[in-house]
Amino acid sequence: MRRRKERIDRGIKVRSGDVFALCSWREMLYLAAPRMLPIVGLLVLSLALSVYWQRVLLSVSVFALLAISWDILAQSGMISLGQALFFGSGAYLAGIMNHYWGWPPAVTIPLATIFGGLLCTLLLTPVLRLRGIYFSMVTLVLPLMLVRIVEATRIFGGTEGLSGLASFPTRWVEIYLIIAALLAALFGFRRLMDSDFGLVLKGINDNDRSVMNAGINIYWFKIQALFIASSVGAFAGAFMTHVYLFVGMPVFALDYSILPIAAAVVGGIGTLAGSTLGAFILVPLSEILRGLGGLRIVFYGLFLVIFTVALPEGIFHYVQRKYHQFERWAEVER
């Protein structure tokens, strides 16, 4: 029996340009498996993990959402250094609605998501004309300013924050809500960015003059992308408020801005799946390194450098390429 190596994807792709024509269960599995992996993986993880690691999974999912939010903006030509603005706005809005008006999480989270998104969009719309680093600087500064405003005016509990907020009924609600949100964001926005609407956003990133020249108001499209991204971040913030039962100045911390970027860069920019993967690597890594005490940051930094030097394209792109190049043995003659 003689054999030769053949690539699995070629047969699938050759049969049609854009649409995959699947001819067997095996081929269906080839396409479905990578998409099923996060769904099945998250469900299994949620059941298999200890209570402590379940908390880590919450935090992972929140950072994954922030990284997705960052990636949506980056794909639309806006490099944000201030995911903390989105996170903090959502967190404070949920906290305020719960603390002052006593609304339950089922009401505060959806409202904080929408109004957090609107608030951030309003704050950033005036600077949408700025490009590159100038836009980034404003996003970096805004959350820092908001912290000082809370501190100086002592509104919303000032430095103490608002505590004793309502919690979710059980930790299972917590964990499945955030898993559902993460999967919905990952698959939903991946689809959106692959649609014609997403193509226009990527076009703005690539060559905004050419998009303007098609009679498209690029600022209106940027505003829409900004609203989508900031709503995702605000949801994450509102969710965490009801997990910590507290909201205060730390929600505007730099961690919420920087870690999502690190996750997106390590995982791979431009796919959303990469950002998610990055968060799933970096956040647990940081937990594992906790035992090292003071040296934790050193090792953490070292890992970041190793990842970015060894795989500058991002882990996801590397894995995806290898998967597409995967070969099997096929019979030539017996």
Binding site: D196, L199, G203, G215
Partner: peptide, 29 residues
């Protein structure tokens, strides 16, 4: 009023026909 650019700068990674989607998304169309 539509114009072309002297320096063409398409989406290099996209197929040619996908490059047409942005003008076809235009409110003008």
């Amino acid at each position: 009023i539509a114009r072309t650019f002297q320096m063409v700068k398409p989406f290099y990674q996209l197929p040619a026909y996908k490059n047409m989607i942005i003008p076809l998304y235009s409110p003008r169309v």
